[in-house]
Amino acid sequence: MRRREDVLLVDGYNMIGAWPMLASLRDNQLEDARDRLLEMLADYQGYTGMEVIVVFDAHQVPGTGSTFSQYRITVVYTKEKETADACIERLASELAMRSRDLYVATSDLVEQHVAFGKGALRISARELLINIQQNRKAIEKSMDYEMKTRNELNNNLSLEVKTQLERWRRGQT
């Protein structure tokens, strides 16, 4: 899942309900849970290079729906009388191509089967969370390695600069 042209469609509220750290936020601070989900997916997108599209269910809210970008992720609020599942199915049909992989992240079994029928690969909420956590560990491990590696200035300076610095150190002009 690391090709630049791959796309991940995420059922936003499904992830919020399935991931323990977001489910605890959901009851009192739904907007904070959405923001935290988007932050986690933005990190995932940055690490994997996949295009991430998150769909939130707004079918009971009057309006035409909206699409915007947040953290370089495409966020879709469904139209009135359109469920997130229907929107994901529509997007899966539009985005399905042989030249890239399309993944649908949801724990809704029926939606997984429909997405699979549209040519998408399915990922459960649990699998996506595990992938995100593993990526986070890999990032932290690489940052630890970089911090432990010596970055000596001496190896990066030209002979002229080293000579001039040595003259200054000795008080010569």
Score class of each variant (00 low, 15 high):
H113T: 10
D32T: 12
D6M: 05
D43A: 09
A105T: 05
D144G: 05
R90L: 07
A86S: 14
L41Q: 04
G12L: 00
Q60L: 13
D11C: 05
K137I: 11
E166T: 10
Q164W: 08
G171S: 05
S158C: 04
D144V: 08
N135E: 14
V10G: 01
G171H: 01
R34C: 01
G119Y: 02
L121C: 08
T149V: 13
L121D: 07
H113N: 13
D144M: 14
I123N: 05
Q70A: 13
A96G: 00
A125I: 06
T48H: 05
V10L: 02
V75P: 02
D43C: 06
L157G: 05
M147K: 15
S99H: 12
L165V: 06
L30P: 07
E39M: 08
A96H: 14
L159T: 11
K81L: 12
I88Y: 00
H113R: 15
M97W: 07
V76K: 09
A92K: 03
D144N: 13
T163W: 10
R34S: 02
L121Y: 15
G46N: 11
S93F: 06
R90Y: 06
S99V: 06
F68P: 06
S93L: 14
M97T: 11
L9C: 02
E5P: 04
E89I: 14
Y13P: 01
I130N: 09
H59K: 10
G49S: 05
E5T: 13
T78D: 03
D27V: 12
E5R: 11
M147H: 14
A23W: 09
T48C: 03
R4Y: 08
I16N: 00
R2E: 15
R26L: 13
V114P: 03
Q70E: 15
P20K: 10
R169Y: 10
R150F: 09
Q164K: 11
K148D: 13
E111Y: 03
R170K: 15
A18F: 05
T48R: 13
K162Y: 01
M143C: 07
Y145D: 15
Y145L: 15
A105S: 06
